[in-house]
Amino acid sequence: MKIEKASPTDIVLALAGNPNTGKSTIFNALTGLKQHTGNWPGKTVTNAQGHFIHRGKPFLLVDLPGTYSILANSPDEQVARDFICFGKPEATIVVTDATNLERNLNLALQIMEITSDVVVAVNLLDEAERKGISVDLSKLSAELGVPVIGTIAREQKGLTELKDIVDDIVMKKLQLKPYQIRYSAGIEERINQLSLKLEKILRGKINARWVALRLLDGDETIIESIEKYLLPSSIDLRGEIASW
């Protein structure tokens, strides 16, 4: 995970979303680069990076592989997850397909469990209109607790507004309160117990509640990634957890 900042002041942004939702089209429109786009999923396989300037500030945009999940069942998912968790993006743009919001929001909700600095782009609004689907963007935003911007990336529509919102998030001008999934009482209790212990080790470097959820899920890959990216080698997280 190499981040190619042009200058140390670059503001890092992540571009995440399901496969084939228009991430690279947005990436190309914003950065002027030519990432592979096309109408089949799985085109973007590594983290393409590009720069743009907005409101006089330099941004570094990272185009992630399309995934349905960031719970790391595949290498692509792990790349996307590791970047969102450990690449320290100051905001994450979740690109969704307006014609298929139900499944797309699954990923948005997963990302909102990790970080609150999220904006949802509802892309392909032209396709949605063709199919007779209309999306109530302000209601969606109220329900999700994060900004929602409608876009038609292929026609470059909505992208200035998207950049404005991203800058507002980075500048902490917005009050974001991402919707958090509540689990059953028993699970919430386990989450709380684990989070308390984890927080002592993680010290705010990553959302402890989210790590607790992954451990309860039996996800071993998150331990490795935390040891690799966040902790000094003197700390044996796996050993600690095994002793609890």
Partner: peptide
């Protein structure tokens, strides 16, 4: 159960 269940749910 497990990872496969997770994957199926993620796929819709």
């Amino acid at each position: 159960n497990g990872l496969l269940r997770r994957r199926l749910l993620d796929l819709g």
